[in-house]
Design a protein around this nucleic acid. Structure first.
Lengths: 219, 219
DNA sequence: TAGATTGTTAATCGATTAACAATC
DNA sequence: TAGATTGTTAATCGATTAACAATC
């Protein structure tokens, strides 16, 4: 019986990590875990774990802790991993190919039904048994295949060009590797951004800072 | 004259986005911008922008705003984009290849000097004119080529196996695509994680929530 | 000078941590 | 029953926003 109050983004972003640790404990055959033990394992506070879990309505037991198998299956429900979402990938370049080949989609409730490209040299090739189709066919494909999510492995400018078509075909969920700001244009969408270059710049900043502070200590 | 107080991670993570917007303004030949205008453009508050910029010590001018070219060059200094860091990529599978081919490293102050693999079928091939070498050579290569950062495009288990060698060769900065928790093992490192599957699960959660709330409104 | 806009302090808001009563 | 550990309330901490005096 989940509490239906709004869950904060901070909590949501911690869920996958919880799920990973719980899954591993389950794989190791563990039966139960306390917030204290899990906190130690994950390097967070026990308080935070209990607060987070209680956003979804208490699946622990006082004096005992949390049943791992129950926790795992609850997390799967919460994350929606047991429902299948049909998806398409836009872009079959290096990034699109890597995404298609590298991610275990089935395990996370996604089913890649089609991959689309504009480059004629790539159209017609196969990736993981999925034929790469021409981007011009994307609208029809979405309508005929119950697609609910688009994964955008194309540059920002290409997203700018195609987003209106995708949206008007009813796509409201995007896994977005570009810097195009979809949520701003269409506010009733769910957009999850993966900005690798931003991450790289953050790394650059932090390396730089560390260097500076080390120089300072040496003086 | 940067204030040397500790900058919070929240601010740091916003820097790349600032840099992107400032760069674009510069490319469009704009001379200056006020926090108010930039706020509108970026969909954040003007207060936040001024607070953030002032962490690094006021590069605006009262009554005028911020000079875009000055702002841009200051951001480059702050992010350390003008210093070159030599890097290696571990893993030349789908992900490693995509990273090597897809990211513009030069633009962000990184220089990929080597790519390493364990799979003998891949060793010896070339990616972007860089020969893929055997992972067994990595220690020597790091020492001979002034490498300061390792980009880990290999599974968690492989990271667990090789991390000690990398660390003892002096690598203190990691761009980590795996779920191995480097920072926990070696606390004096700078680790930037890219967890694509976590992002995917967050998307799954949010799609699920949206669906639920829509069903509720229909009732 | 008057208008604009910053830099900065103060107020608000939200997230994390601590504490403890409830209860298995 | 006694011990353990949750669920939850209260306290603290940090981040965001608002306000305004300083100043170009």
């Amino acid at each position: 019986m989940p509490k239906s109050n709004k869950i904060s983004m901070s909590v949501i972003r911690r869920l996958p990590r919880y799920y990973r640790f719980i899954s591993e404990l389950a794989d190791n055959g563990e039966q139960r875990i306390s917030s204290g033990k899990l906190a130690e394992l994950m390097n967070v506070t026990a308080s935070q774990i209990r607060q987070d879990f209680n956003c979804f309505g208490g699946f622990g037991q006082q004096g005992y802790g949390y049943s791992i198998s129950y926790l795992k299956s609850e997390m799967e429900n919460i994350l929606g991993l047991n429902k299948v979402n049909n998806a398409i990938i836009l872009g079959a370049g290096n990034l699109g190919k890597a995404v298609a080949l590298h991610i275990n989609f089935a395990e996370r409730g996604f089913n890649i039904k089609g991959i689309f490209e504009t480059n004629p040299n790539i159209i017609g090739t196969k990736i993981n048994d999925i034929e790469v189709m021409s981007e011009s066919q994307v609208d029809e494909f979405i309508k005929n295949n119950d697609i609910s999510i688009a994964m955008l492995c194309i540059p920002r400018q290409s997203v700018a060009t195609i987003i209106d078509r995708l949206y008007s075909c009813g796509i409201k969920a995007y896994w977005n590797f570009s810097h195009f700001d979809i949520a701003r244009k269409y506010s009733d969408t769910v957009v999850e951004n993966v900005h690798m270059t931003d991450s790289l710049m953050t790394l650059s900043y932090r390396m730089n800072e560390k260097l500076k502070s080390e120089e300072k200590t040496e003086e």
